[in-house]
Amino acid sequence: MSAMAILVDLFAGRRDAAALAPREWDGVIGVARAEAMLATLAHRLAEVDVPEPVALLLADQRRAAEVATGQALWEAEMARRALAPERIEFVLLKGTAYAAAGLSCAAGRQIGDLDILVGKHDLARTENALLKAGWEWVKSDPYDDAYYRAHMHELPPLIHGGRDRMIDVHHTILPRTHRKTPDPLAMLADAVPAPDGFAVLCPTDMACHCAAHLLADGDLQGGLRNLWDFHCLASDFAVADPGFWGKLDGRADQHGLRSEVRRAARLARDLLGTLLPSGWDAHDPTDRWFHRRLLARDDWGRSSDFLLQQAFYIRSHWLRMPPAMLARHLWTKWHKRR
């Protein structure tokens, strides 16, 4: 059994961690690191009796993740202090949002950049306020910069000189040129307060964004983490609100993300054991390509299945922009590389 298969079995609770062989642990620890999920696994197995060296390593990971989460929330606070005087309202997205809202997927979750959503009308003011508060441009390349501004769903990334942390300022959740065009105004309007005064997306939007991020934006590299997010979000929201799945359907339709949300739910069910209501419990033969892609890693932590990776890479660009534009973009990028 491959280490990736064991890893998802551990997350799904289908396998007893106490019964793993030493060489199986090698692989599991390696692939969990590669998927940036070792600390998440450490939380999942916090109550399980594992060999002592593993228990020590997992305890290290939990402690380190706690520090990292605190640092990520501090970065959100820094953004608020920069934007509040300008009366710019923003909504936290992804990892920082999960942590601010105290959601179960936040336990041990690695948080990279700070992602925020602002109204498109506030974009220029947000940029100025952040620049004034010490953030700087990362991309020096004029083509990349122009590309971001013209076609992307976020500003070119900014980095804070003193703290060395990046912020991604989104005005919607998928690139402007994407085939799918979710409704960011509805997301902003229905955002909900989190503790400490931050705003986060409402439960259905959070699940929609998570599914869109996993399946519509990118090549599924490191997608297992996003799938785990979806599993935790949907499972927790469904416990808190028995009508959640029905509302999610309606909201996904509104954003044009029905197929992404449905597929995310099926993949989470298949790999992580998410309980789906009747009506969601269908099977789609194309899902198996996604299963394979999500598990495409060997026991040494290396990406495997090169052709499948390439196929998903091409798919991600295909979704992201119309063909003529894609051709122009690749042409420019190719010229610049030479």
Binding site: P22, W25, D26, I29, P53, R302
Partner: peptide
């Protein structure tokens, strides 16, 4: 320690 899982992987 043959029974000890690896903390770190080098390739």
């Amino acid at each position: 320690h043959e029974d000890r899982p690896a903390d770190a992987t080098v390739r």
